[in-house]
């Protein structure tokens, strides 16, 4: 285990220092050092098994880091005494498999955590939920159950659910990978709108077009380390590292 090598940057939304993560004997993250500034959209790409989803899940402690430090808006979330639940309610998360609650209507999916976690009254929760459903274009679907929505609609509802907690930042774990190709555009559209509003976003994705168009920073991971990072247009056009070149030649 290596000790933290630097202090956190002031003003960073997410700051990851010397992060290591083992699953058993398997080292999945081998010393990640990385930050997301306020209002930035950072896209993380890389081959499967590169550790990018694990990194994302460490940021809201869905995976417990083995060593290293993570700061969210200056609060160290890897401090054992931290209130994990209150940190998580400030970080929205969107999953590859949507993970809507199938036993609840779309509206209830959006209000349940507002009421149970944020202790909002029902009227306020419903109002916030309707506002966010309108934002993702699903106002008509508030009474539907998730099973009755298309994949793209489910993912947009999941984004609205995360937004209803008024998060300071959003994490996206391959949000379009489980979607039929013709449904990807709607979800990316919602994400672009969010970015334009200045939302801080960390996006694990295979959508190079999205990264190029919307991303402020592109991070390429392979084998549990960050191989290369920089301006998306530059990294995609002139990758410096051989592994980045080889990966991009396969996906572009």
């Amino acid at each position: 285990m290596s000790a933290a090598t630097r202090e956190t940057r002031t003003g960073a939304a997410i700051d990851v220092i010397e992060l290591h993560k083992y699953f058993g004997d398997n080292e999945v993250l081998k010393g990640i050092d990385f930050h997301v500034d306020n209002g930035q959209v950072v896209c993380v790409i890389g081959p499967s098994g590169s550790g990018k989803s694990t990194l994302l899940k460490c940021v809201n402690l869905l995976e417990q880091p083995t060593s290293g430090r993570i700061f969210v808006e200056g609060d160290e979330i890897t401090d054992p005494d931290v209130d994990v639940d209150s940190i998580r309610s400030r970080i929205g998360m969107v999953f590859q498999q949507f993970n809507l609650f199938p036993h609840l209507t779309v509206l209830r999916n959006l209000t349940i955590a507002q009421q149970r976690v944020k202790k909002r009254g029902k009227d306020e929760a419903v109002e916030v939920a309707r506002r966010n459903l309108a934002k993702v274009g699903l106002s008509e679907k508030e009474k539907a159950y998730p099973a009755h929505l298309s994949g793209g609609q489910q993912q947009r509802a999941a984004i609205a659910r995360a937004l209803s907690m008024d998060p300071d930042m959003m994490l996206f774990d391959e949000p379009t990978s489980a979607l039929d190709p013709e449904l990807v555009g709607d979800v990316l559209g919602v994400m672009k709108d969010l970015a334009a509003e200045g939302m801080t976003m960390m996006v694990v994705t295979h959508e190079m077009g999205f990264a190029r168009e919307v991303g402020d920073k592109l991070v390429f991971m392979d084998g549990g380390i960050i191989v290369e990072e920089g301006d998306p247009r530059e990294v995609l056009a002139k990758p410096q590292h051989e592994r980045t070149r080889s990966f991009l030649s396969k996906v572009l």
């Binding site: 869905l62 639940d85 998580r88 400030r90 998360m93 498999q97 955590a113 149970r116």
Partner: peptide, 15 residues
């Protein structure tokens, strides 16, 4: 119940 359900609930700040 799929593990993703717990992850989604916890990510919304539920205990």
């Amino acid at each position: 119940v799929p593990k993703g359900q717990t992850e989604a609930a916890r990510s919304l700040g539920m205990s």
